[in-house]
Design a protein around this nucleic acid. Sequence first.
DNA 1: TTGTAAGCGTTATCAT
DNA 2: ATGATAACGCTTACAA
Lengths: 340, 340
Amino acid sequence: MATKPTLHEVAAAAGVSQASASRALTGRSASPDMVRKVRRAAKSIGYLPDATARALRLGGRRQVVFGVADIGNPNYVQMLRAIEEELDETANVSVTALGRRENQSLELLRMISMGAGDGLIITPIQVTRALRQAIRESVVPIVVIGRLEPGLEVDNVFVDSSEAVQMAVDHLVEAGRSHIGMIHGPENTNPGKVRRAGFHTAMARHELSRVAVREVTATDFTHAAGVEAATRLLSAVKAEGEQLDAIVCVNDLVAIGALHAADQFGLKVPEDVAVTGIDDTDLASLYKPSLTSVSLHSDERGRVAAQMLRDRFEDPSRPPRKEAVQPTLKIRSSTIGEAR
Amino acid sequence: MATKPTLHEVAAAAGVSQASASRALTGRSASPDMVRKVRRAAKSIGYLPDATARALRLGGRRQVVFGVADIGNPNYVQMLRAIEEELDETANVSVTALGRRENQSLELLRMISMGAGDGLIITPIQVTRALRQAIRESVVPIVVIGRLEPGLEVDNVFVDSSEAVQMAVDHLVEAGRSHIGMIHGPENTNPGKVRRAGFHTAMARHELSRVAVREVTATDFTHAAGVEAATRLLSAVKAEGEQLDAIVCVNDLVAIGALHAADQFGLKVPEDVAVTGIDDTDLASLYKPSLTSVSLHSDERGRVAAQMLRDRFEDPSRPPRKEAVQPTLKIRSSTIGEAR
DNA sequence: TTGTAAGCGTTATCAT
DNA sequence: ATGATAACGCTTACAA
């Protein structure tokens, strides 16, 4: 009872050979009598087969692990779908949610080194020094989805989300907006930082005045945080007598929150204020008004990552590849009114 | 090149012992020189470690596989989250998307029998005779989430979604609606069948007239299918001069579709027509008007399933358990107007 | 630090 | 149909 019973024990308990026990349980060739005896013995001593040992002998398919911060995030879901589809013939894909723990991806690498998978796709929120080191030393192939500072030799797909913010601003300017605010994401996250920079770049390029009161930071990438931040933004604008005719949001969820807040303030979208999101979630087209959003092509990024991993399985010595995916602007009602 | 290189080959190529090769790659105790030599050899012959063999030796954690029809479905996402949380200490959880293939869960059982996991949680869309047989014969523990006909001895969590539909109808009747229609799900799916029956039961109980034209069947559980079905429904109602003041929908996505269709027809929700969903997705509270929906408590079902599996790991001989989760009605604006 | 050899729990091969 | 035994690819005492 103390230690996990093995097939050996089952065989002993049933008074038969280990080979017979194996056959009886997997139903190859065994007499009905044998099957009864063995199954009974197995049950009585609480035997459960060891998947790993079986897989070793049977030579199953490769196991690929996909590590994400939050499995509820539609981006990751899209990536997962694409990865699974792309790797369908090659491997089983399993997702592991890391939460927003400091060491997120690191723990995962440790798991992997325990034999949890033959390959790894990660989407790190923040790339620490320790993580870079772990990646460098890893024996199992890793593909990183996300921006990486130069100098790390690893397969990598990324999208320039600074560019994404700039596309949103450009679009707003073309649509005649000039008093543009932004709801940023948390400063200590990669997307938060990068998109903030993109906003500043675009505003400078268009020579639009950045007014402190028009920029706020959401505490999270969620709907609730969006409502809160947008409320803060609109209150401040009102209090200071500032102008505002557009809000760029760090992602779709936050943008939907902003839509709600605008409604609370009695503002019409897009007549009074235009709103843009990033990610082009399903939500963007489902919501009313439908949300103008910049697609970061999560599916494409997932697909490319999967291809990289597959290629590496086939030729482990090939040099690491880096590939960029271009964002795309999807114009909808929240910025131009009568789109359908 | 033909066959996958093993550590044995690496050692041979580097001219060292297999043990040294292992140590050099995993970085235990090896001279810098040894590490260089081995890593080079490994790269040159294209060696990749075998996760299974490692796991066998290292005794990693249990692998639990969660099989779902569609990983994009928020219900499954919620379940997965709960399962992962519940099993955090016990096992790694991996999701496998089966698609809507005929043999969905069967294939999964075959994978499992190849050693892909130590335990299985499945959410079968349809329970075929073959699946029942496979479940009965399986040596690895299985938990089924979903309604099951009696006679199958297996751990099982379910929710009575017929009851869920009835709760929706009851609520609408209490709110003064009497001409109630329903958008059903595909007839060849379990939820489709069960919810259809629930609707008929409730309508009979309230002695409300079921009019053929007020019931339509969506081809899928998606938003698009909802728009299409609702359009069909509203056209028919209009053409026949029928009355309609409420639409019960087979799930939230379809309900959102119905909301859009109603808008197209110039109908106000809930003034002209009330709409209900099932699942209580995030979408339900995000959408405007927010959607009255019956929660099927996916998280709770996931949690219970995970507990059952854990309990079975601990005592494989315990008798199978069946547990029911009760649906809950969440009233929002799409049926009563001024809810916030 | 390095090599030798013994498993990890299972299934497949070969006799019987 | 059953039993003995050799793998599967790797890590780790133990000895050198």
